[in-house]
Each structure stands twice: as C-alpha cells, then as structure tokens.
Simulated scan of single mutants.
Amino acid sequence: MDNNDETTLPADTLAILNEFLAERSQREHAEEQRQINKTGKDAHFEEDWQLSQFWYSEQTKRTIGNAVEKILAEQSNDDFRIALLSCPSLYATIKNLHDKVNIFEYDQRFAAYGNDFVHYDFNAIDSSSEYLKDHHKCFDLIIADPPFLSEECMSKMSRIVISLQRSSKSKLVFCSGEVVEPWLVASLPVHRCRFRPEHERNLGNEFVSYANFNFDHYIDK
C-alpha cells in the first residue's frame, strides 16, 4: 500500500462513529447543564468587586429558597414567573424550585445560564421607558439586590422593577443596605422586614430585606 494513501472507514462504520460522537456530545452538554442547575455556575466564578458582586452565604440562599418554595406552593397560576435582578448566587437555588426563572445581570459571564439570562444595565432605563420591553409585565415575584447603595441606583432599579412586575399584586423582595431605606420606600411600596441576608464575606454595611408583602411570614413559616 502506498504510504500516501488516506485510510478511510466504510460508510456504515463512519455513520455509526458519527452517531456515537454526537450522542456523547449531547450527554456531556446535558451533564454540564445539570451541574449548572444543581450547583450554580457562579460557584465557579469569582466575585467581581468592581461590579459590586458579593455572593450570599449558603444559609441565606437556603432561607430565601425555602421562602420561595412556600410562596410557590400557594400559587395556582401555571405561568408564575420569577425575576432575579443582580443576585446571581440565588439562581441555582431558585431554579431547582421552579423552571420559569430569569436572571437579569450586567455581567455577561452569566450567559452560561442560556435563555434564562437577560443582559441589563440599570442605567439604560434613562434612555427609554421601553427598555427591556420584551419583559414588561411578565413577573409575579421579583427579587432584587441593587449593586450600589445610592439614591440613583435605587431610583433606576425601582423603575425597572415597576416595568417588570405583572401587576400591582406581584411580590417584590429587595435585599440591600439599611442606608438605602429612605430612597427605596420613596420609590416602591415596600417596608423593611426582619430577615437579614448574609454574605460569604463580611461586609461593612448592615444588610436588610424589604418587601411589599409579609416576607417574614414565609421566612418563619
């Protein structure tokens, strides 16, 4: 045989090999997605302090997850949808409870969550009231953790939240610093709750939660 001749497989053998490789690729992708849903891709991401990212503690994720599970148990709406704004470390916990979850993030790394990911910049709300139009009036529960403790951030985040909530009955939960309370309650019909979220790192500011319903009832229930 001429050493320059290329070795080729019979057509049927090649078809079987290609089918095997395709199935293996699908299995690997499915396993990767299962791990994302189970543990959260953020487990492999470092916090970006320049984006004011601070991951919640495991206890806080479990506590919020348990509260959300109780809220979901009360729902008769099959289209109940949840939005997470700037709190990516909650995604895996909430996704394990409910399939209809969108994560709104400025950080493009979280595009790893596929169609659940929505890129957003809270500053863009100034450019148009139609910002994020495809998601207007879509969500029944919105959990937000504004990235910055400023009046401007609270005002813009509140405007986005108002555009996203399905109706005035949509449940809103904010996790943020005590310092933002005057600005937040001036923008949204929320009040401070007893629940205090904690982070993996000890932060200097005191963090609390705010809601437009009795969130503590679901925390304590």
Rank of each mutant, 00 (worst) to 15 (best):
M1G: 14
D2C: 11
E6F: 05
L9N: 12
D12E: 10
F20E: 15
F20Q: 12
A22C: 11
R24T: 12
R27P: 14
E28H: 04
H29W: 15
A30H: 08
E31N: 09
I36N: 06
T39L: 03
E46S: 15
E47Y: 01
D48F: 10
L51E: 11
W55E: 15
Y56D: 15
E58D: 11
E58Q: 10
K61V: 01
I64D: 13
K70Q: 04
E74D: 07
D78M: 10
T93R: 03
I94G: 02
H98K: 00
D99F: 03
N102D: 03
I103P: 04
A111L: 10
N115F: 03
Y120C: 03
D121M: 00
N123S: 11
S129R: 03
L132Q: 02
K137N: 09
C138A: 06
F139H: 06
I143V: 13
A144F: 00
P147K: 05
E151S: 10
E152M: 03
S155G: 12
R159E: 13
I160S: 03
I160L: 02
I162C: 01
L164Q: 01
L164D: 01
K169V: 02
K171R: 01
V173H: 00
S176Y: 03
G177M: 13
V179E: 12
P182D: 04
L184W: 06
P197G: 13
P197D: 06
R201Y: 05
N205L: 13
V208A: 09
V208D: 14
H217R: 09
I219P: 13
